[in-house]
Design a protein around this nucleic acid. Sequence first.
DNA 1: GGTGACAAGATTGTCAACAATCGTGTCAGC
DNA 2: GCTGACACGATTGTTGACAATCTTGTCACC
Lengths: 214, 214
Amino acid sequence: MSSDVVTDRLRTALLAGQYAPRQRLIETELAADLSVSRSAVRNALLQLAAEGLVEMQLNRGARVREISLAEAVEITEVRQGIESLVAARAAERVTDEQAEELRELGERMSDAVVRGELVAYSDLNAALHARLREIAGHETATRIVEQLNGQLVRHQFRLAMLPGRPGRSLPEHLAIIDAVRARDAEGARAAMAAHLGSVLTTLAALEDGSGRRA
Amino acid sequence: MSSDVVTDRLRTALLAGQYAPRQRLIETELAADLSVSRSAVRNALLQLAAEGLVEMQLNRGARVREISLAEAVEITEVRQGIESLVAARAAERVTDEQAEELRELGERMSDAVVRGELVAYSDLNAALHARLREIAGHETATRIVEQLNGQLVRHQFRLAMLPGRPGRSLPEHLAIIDAVRARDAEGARAAMAAHLGSVLTTLAALEDGSGRRA
DNA sequence: GGTGACAAGATTGTCAACAATCGTGTCAGC
DNA sequence: GCTGACACGATTGTTGACAATCTTGTCACC
């Protein structure tokens, strides 16, 4: 169905931050922009609403869903539970080849931090979590974490740009990698839980510090 | 929108086990049955596909999604992570009134087991988990656990009917209730993790024992 | 100057018809 | 008797038009 293509295009646009939070998404406009029929857009919006990227109100159409800091905290708490499982599972199933890959990934992360390449580090961060999910091979966990991640993009971006944040999160990431490479499931679980715990405290600090509406 | 009503009706029908797994859901038929337009049914099916209750294939429409035992295990593993969080949060936030409610719920569960009322026990089981989610007040966790639960109904039902299963799960439930009533967050987390761990071993036993296709 | 009713415009929700696709049964050819 | 092409029926995917609803701007009235 062409709706699927439309859904993908809209999703990537949303994830790229192409539309502002709370912005109205008018079906006719989007249909014209993407040069597809309104129903295709409509279906896509329904789909994205189910994924939590947009919110729909009766007779008022779709808006870009704004994720508050409080929600970001909730989402990260849930991620903590699931990704710990993923890390443990990855430690149990990692192959030698994958272990070597993870080692290289860790080196590249260190390099990026040393060189102050924040965006690159942020990308590698996402890549690491994604690679762990692949290694774990846990479809349900993967599906849900990715759904949750989609809702977080904006906040994750903000977080990575905080001064001093990379210096704190890098060793956490390296600890996860080490535990997985050592096939230490419980160690990997704990390292991942600690890492997301650190994300949570950072978010909580933001919650007190900065304003509500940013 | 009328699609929402249709979605709800279809969802409850699916959760009630009114359609067999892998059964095709033909839009025209459902539209006639519910006496609504086909588009309403179509939207509902898309929605339910996003929730994981049905699966859609291009040009081949919707089927009731069959959840394999392996998937049930995955789902329960994820639930273990999230519901542990819920239990801990509930222990932190429970009011005196809610604590009393939980105590009564525990008594009713014990009664049901003593009297051998399996269906009632199964219902109370679901009610306990739901009440804990309410007490925890964690919207994200609630949303995801309920989504996952929807996919499990069939297996949960099978599980509750296993001989000896209520005798094993009752004390686990009571332990959760006690920890929450004692405001012992870590205890509640551990009790919930242990409970779902016990569900997991039971599921694993089923996986070896019975055939694949049941 | 402010408030409420009303009308116009914009936008969404619903429907029925049309086009595209798939699965199945039939039949010719070997 | 078996295989593959073909056509038919069933079902889904898409489109455009129409109805219902909300929002905004205007104006009379207090």
